[in-house]
Design a protein around this nucleic acid. Structure first.
Lengths: 221, 221, 221, 221
DNA sequence: GATGAATGAGCATTCATTCAT
DNA sequence: AATGAATGAATGCTCATTCAT
């Protein structure tokens, strides 16, 4: 299937090494605090080598996003393959997202960072940026698909445009996770005087709430 | 009512001028791209003057957040004063938030930026930061209050902890608005191949969805 | 003798207040670290008022030097008035200097700071600078006088030019005190691995050494 | 003997170039007046390059001190190796110091500047600072050694603690040289109305004076 | 006289990116 | 391909001094 030359394989390994290291450095110093020097040193590579594989610092961040998107999409696609009612697919997609964020918080941060960069000229014309977009589109497609399934099987109200509903669910999910993250990260963020809800609890209740909202009346318990 | 000396009034005016200008500069160059030099020049002030009124760049950003929070809270508080069912209060709060974001997109950005800074030492001990937090707590309190009203009057299910539900609604709302913003800001962000939903439509449907999810069965139409 | 108008007296009091405060601020923050703002605030005066009395920051420093020089000279002049052998005058002058430095370390620092500024254009044409110089000349004159007395009364060798010898004694004394200060100020400055001699002991032994060196043979014990 | 790679040699040469240039700039503008920009420009290097070799401005100053200390210590160590009476060693050390100061006035200034910084946090933990201290300790050790030699061979009174005496001699010498410098540097500094003694004469007479003071009676001429 | 708001030149330091070897 | 020395634009902040009120 894939017959890559040794050269090619080494090249890819190098690239992966750089991304691995960048993830590590970012975990320690944050996206703003991470420097090319730090990545190069930790990877035991020359700084110039970084630029052999990535045309800019932003490219590395994009590569991290790409990796994260790929991973998430793989997880999501499995849900789509299961034999579930649409409404349950949506719920499961939510759980999968929760797991993903808990397991790879760096990717959650990366997605946020990436979104903040959108529109800046830095990303212009980048192949990686295009790839990230493609993955994002794909993720959306999974959600929309699940919604369509649910509308077909009657488990989800068909009064919404599935694409619009998908967008809403996607955005809302990210928002809930984001706020939960903030609260976990910082005691300061005592938005609720002294109550602290777990990321888990928050997301689960959110899923239930949203599920209840979109469930078709026929299926109401 | 309030008799401020001319000095005092001028001082406040200067301060407001700086914040105004900073908002303008940030709108053009983004939070990272905005420099103190640019603000000073645009405000036709010396750079030192900026530091006469704000002890750091972060302080100005914080002041912008404070201003935005204050404004939003004023709008929210009015809703609480109305004679509405809890569920309708929540919906109206959502609409108010939508209006706010559309009218003052800069504040929406500022809130996001501020949240990213939380936990950094830069904000430590700042009076402004404390004020911002206080406003955030207050905003949450309005939502929780509305939920409690709804649970009392039977328009909202009382199976959730109102504080947790408040957090969910707050987070989800921000997430929905955020994603809608992204789409408006950038054609690139074609998460849905070529369909574009308005911020308005998205948020309204989100409100309906969430409202439907939390409505107590007695009130189901 | 001195009939100063109230205006004049108040003016002088203001001036003294500023110098007092500056000494205090410098004691806390050092010469480089002291700012006009800090002095103004501590003196409870407007910053502009400082410039009403002193044309620059350097002027204040100069005024401190002048004050210190005046004080030291008063002390030295008393020694000259005593009925002592020249060699004992010199020794007593040394003790007086030691006392002075211990009592007013700020002036010792001020003298050093002033000397470092000599030659910079900042001091050019200043009346205060001229006054400081005059005081320094006067201090030298006291030493030279004592030496001459000693050469006359036979207690000091007359093989040296009294003016040159005076310069040497003056310089050496300051050097000894300086190094003793350094050691007291900082444990770091462990020039002698772990031994620490008191400023007092150092200076006294220095006086004895120098005294022994210049004593005429007739007076050798 | 030492085979350094070309890279290594170039690296050292760059470093030396920077120190050379810094010495030059400091000679012209003083320690406070010298800026990193000026050094970079004069060295025809990018400003960043300076920071490639020195982690801060203070580090460059420290490097100058280190260089000077090293040079002085080499000269002093040679004296210790000679077959001289202790008292003559001390005198010769004095002459060596005089020569050093006349040849490299910049180092004399650097030492003074360095001493003023001692105790500031800027130097904390610096390897260079430690090296400078070590050199200072070593210089003191030479003086103490010579004194001990003199006490042994009977040319110096043994009534003093050699370490304390060493400190006195070191301090006094610096003080004499300092005052002589001041007079040479500036006609203003007319501490003695119109007489000017050469640095040379001053130091030589100081040496004789101090020598005479510490000479044991057996050796008095 | 007294004030203190305004000024702006000046500075040390950082870091993504380039390029000669 | 790999390197890492060199770069220099960019930035936040300070503080002595001025001047309108």
């Amino acid at each position: 299937m894939k017959k890559l030359s040794r050269k090619e394989r080494e090249r890819i390994a190098r690239r992966e090494l750089i991304i691995d290291t960048a993830e590590e450095v970012i975990s320690n110093y944050g996206f703003e605090g991470a420097t090319m020097d730090a990545v190069a040193e930790k990877a035991e590579l020359g700084k110039g080598t970084l630029y052999l594989h990535f045309k800019s610092k932003a490219s590395i961040y994009l590569a991290i996003c790409e990796r994260g998107s790929k991973k998430l999409n793989q997880l999501m696609s499995k849900v789509l393959a299961e034999d579930l009612k649409g409404i349950d697919m949506i719920k499961k997609l939510g759980m999968v997202y929760l797991d993903f964020v808990k397991t790879y918080p760096i990717y959650f941060s990366a997605f946020n960072y990436y979104e903040n960069l959108i529109g800046e000229e830095k990303l212009a014309g980048s192949e990686l940026a295009a790839q990230c977009e493609e993955y994002a589109r794909e993720a959306m497609a999974y959600i929309v698909r699940a919604l369509q399934v649910g509308m077909q099987d009657g488990s989800i109200k068909d009064s919404y445009d599935p694409r619009e509903l998908g967008l809403i669910i996607w955005g809302a999910s990210k928002g809930v996770v984001h706020i939960a993250f903030l609260k976990e990260k910082k005691d300061h963020m005592k938005i609720l005087d002294d109550v602290s809800f777990s990321l888990e609890s928050l997301v689960k209740n959110f899923i239930e709430l949203i599920g209840s909202g979109m469930r078709s009346d026929d299926h109401k318990s």
